Simulated assay, not measured.
Amino acid sequence: MANKIPNRQVICDTLLRLAENDPDIMVLASDSRGSAAMGPFADTFPEQFVEVGIAEQNIVGIAAGLAHSGKKPYVTSPACFLSMRSIEQIKVDVAYSATNVKLVGISGGVSYGALGMSHHSVQDLAVMRAIPGLAIVLPADRHETKKMTEALVSYEGGAYMRIGRNPVEDVYESDDYEFVIGQASKMREGTDITIIAAGETVRVALDAYAELLEAGVSARILNMHTIKPLDEAAIISAARETGRIITVEEHSIHGGLGAAVAEVVVQHHPVPVRILGIPDEPAIAGKTAEVFNHYGINASNIKQIALELLGR
């Protein structure tokens, strides 16, 4: 049966459970308790919930103040607004001030669909990567979302977690596995080529693995759930052992996962790298699957790219 639970609901459920024994956990919303699925948290722990309204700059500043007071604030706001309107506060109040603020960008990537460029967030990783000391994480499914939310509660320092809007197909069978921030998850072994993905494109990479296997290609699949701090060792090993890399992301081809991987490869073990994502244009409006297919973020195109890199 297909998963019907969106990652935003998993975050709420996890924080509800953790907050029962930790009164310092707080959730802040920018008129987004509904879209962030944080209504149950607000109802259960009203003293640990702050509704700021449509004031994204303020929400980050308030969260930083709460963190300075010993609280563990989670800011939940649409990724498109949180990553663009609040960037100065994230830079100064969170990063420069070294506050323990967790920023949750909901409905990230192109998951706002038909609302188009104003609501798409395909530049957020590039912007956040350039801010010192800010961790950046993207869960691939509901199981990883749970593990990631738990890990972030005990993670000291600022972090940006980007999730989509709708339920996504599971890539893990359960949450019974080890999750470590900054340590990539090897989803499949392979020797011919490596496909590195993050967030909802991990499912796409796994589908490509199956198609490549049928074509006689052994593909390594890495779930690079942490964009920063980046697992450079896993990338260098992939370059040395497979000789070719494809990156897949729900983000601009500039400054995101592909750029981060290429920066490591070119400095440590240069091999051919192909970056698959949103090109340098306003992404088309449409459902996530439609946008992905339009830009070739699908298994068949990844297979074709892999075969080209392998000279087949």
Rank of each mutant, 00 (worst) to 15 (best):
N3K: 03
I5K: 10
P6L: 13
C12K: 01
L16N: 10
R17Q: 15
L18P: 02
L18Y: 13
L18H: 08
P23E: 15
I25F: 06
I25M: 01
L28Q: 02
S32M: 07
S32Q: 00
A36C: 11
A36D: 08
P40K: 00
F41V: 07
F49D: 00
F49I: 10
F49M: 08
E51D: 15
V52Q: 00
G53Q: 12
E56C: 08
Q57L: 05
N58V: 12
I59P: 02
V60W: 09
I62S: 13
A67S: 15
H68F: 14
S69P: 05
Y74H: 12
V75K: 07
A79H: 04
L82C: 08
S86C: 11
E88H: 04
E88I: 06
Q89G: 08
I90W: 05
K91D: 07
V92A: 02
Y96R: 11
G105R: 01
I106G: 02
V110T: 13
V110I: 13
G116Q: 11
S121Y: 03
D124H: 09
R129A: 11
L134P: 05
L138N: 03
A140N: 02
D141Q: 06
E144N: 03
T145E: 12
K147E: 03
T149W: 01
A151D: 11
A159R: 09
Y160W: 09
M161E: 10
R162A: 01
D170F: 00
D170P: 05
D170R: 12
E173Q: 12
S174G: 14
V180P: 00
I181S: 01
G182L: 08
R188N: 15
E189N: 12
I196P: 04
A197M: 12
A197Q: 09
G199P: 02
E200P: 02
V202R: 00
D207I: 03
A210K: 10
A210R: 13
E211Y: 09
L212N: 01
A215C: 10
G216T: 14
G216M: 09
A219S: 14
I221Y: 10
L222F: 08
T226E: 00
D231K: 02
I235E: 06
I236W: 07
A239S: 13
A239L: 10
E241W: 04
T242F: 08
E249G: 09
H254Q: 14
G258V: 03
E263Q: 11
H269T: 05
I275C: 00
G277I: 02
I278G: 01
P279F: 05
D280E: 12
E281K: 07
P282R: 07
N293I: 07
N298Y: 04
K303R: 11
Q304S: 14
